[in-house]
Amino acid sequence: MTNPAAVLWDMDGTLVDTEPYWIRAETELLNAHGIDWSEEQGLEFVGNDLLTSAAMMQDAGLDLPAREIVDTLLDEVVAKIEASVPFRPGALEFLDAIVSAGIPCVMVTMSYRRLAEAVISACPEGSFVGLIAGDEVSAGKPDPEPYLKGAALLGLEPGACVALEDSKPGLASAEAAGTIAIGIPHLVELEQRPGRNLWSSLQGRGVADLQELTSQLSV
């Protein structure tokens, strides 16, 4: 059985679930400026890049520059991550199994670097050998650029790498890049189609599951 050359991890929704932290931070910021806003309304921001969410908050009446809004939200969410990291079920165990097998892992996320680094710092030392962050790419997911860069970081062809994703844009990015993409649905359903790999969870998964996929490609 053949190991993949590397595993490229999406962060939010796959490794961790920080969405409740974001919704709380956005709601608290709006409320602090006298704007009536609920966490239920905060669901409108899910999946947005930070500048888009900032623009929506300005539309709701928040009179602050977009960059200040983004920095304020990042400060709040990073502080929450440093206090407690909400790992997805089975994610840490799966990550440990991959690293123990000598397979390098790279994080490929649309989150900003300082947030991603806070999550990486909460993982066992040496879990990730590289990071592609959302504020460092010219085109974000669903464009293939993030995953192409993730593989290139290790000098690998994308087709030799497994990518783990929970979202439609993320899975589209990984597939377009030519990786062995695995979808693990979280907040949204992912469409089942021929040739697509979908897992219901990372719980109970191990290196043998990855080897099965890479072996199918080599047949």
Rank of each mutant, 00 (worst) to 15 (best):
I103T: 08
V7I: 12
G90D: 02
G150V: 05
H33E: 08
G155C: 01
G47V: 02
Q203F: 02
G13C: 10
G155R: 00
L202P: 03
G102M: 00
L43Y: 07
E93M: 01
A177T: 08
G34C: 10
V99E: 00
C161K: 04
D12E: 14
P146G: 04
L115A: 14
S218G: 03
N3H: 14
F128W: 07
A6K: 00
Y112T: 03
G140E: 06
W22Y: 15
C161N: 05
G170P: 05
A54N: 04
T52C: 07
V7T: 05
A5Q: 08
T72M: 07
G159A: 15
C123A: 12
E189D: 15
M56V: 00
P146L: 08
A6R: 01
Q211Y: 00
T72Y: 04
R196H: 13
E93T: 13
E40L: 05
W9K: 01
Y21R: 00
L30Q: 00
I132P: 04
E117T: 13
G126D: 07
R193C: 13
G183R: 11
D36M: 11
P144K: 02
G126A: 07
S173C: 07
A133N: 09
K141T: 11
F128N: 02
D96Y: 02
V129H: 03
A160R: 14
L202W: 03
V16S: 06
I35T: 06
E93S: 08
G126F: 10
R196E: 14
D209Q: 01
P4C: 11
I98L: 04
L62R: 03
V85K: 09
I182N: 05
M11N: 13
G47P: 01
V108A: 03
M56N: 07
Q192V: 13
W37N: 00
A6W: 03
L29A: 09
L187P: 00
E125F: 03
E76Q: 13
E117R: 15
V77P: 01
E26Q: 15
V99R: 14
G126Q: 05
E76R: 15
S215H: 14
K80L: 14
L217V: 12
G170C: 11
E82W: 12
V219H: 13
V77M: 04
E82N: 15
E212C: 02
K168W: 00
V108N: 03
D143V: 00
K80S: 12
P158L: 05
A172C: 12
D96K: 02
V70R: 14
E40R: 13
K149L: 11
A25Q: 08
S100G: 11
P20F: 08
W9M: 06
S38A: 11
A208M: 07
L154C: 13
L8G: 01
W9L: 05
R24S: 07
L213A: 05
A32D: 14
S167T: 10
Q58S: 08
Q192N: 09
T27K: 10
V77I: 02
L43K: 14
C105L: 01
N197T: 11
T52V: 12
L50D: 11
E68D: 15
V106A: 02
D75H: 13
L43M: 11
N197F: 09
P142H: 07
L190C: 09
E68A: 10
F87I: 05
V16Y: 09
I182Y: 08
P142D: 05
P169I: 00
L213H: 04
E68Y: 03
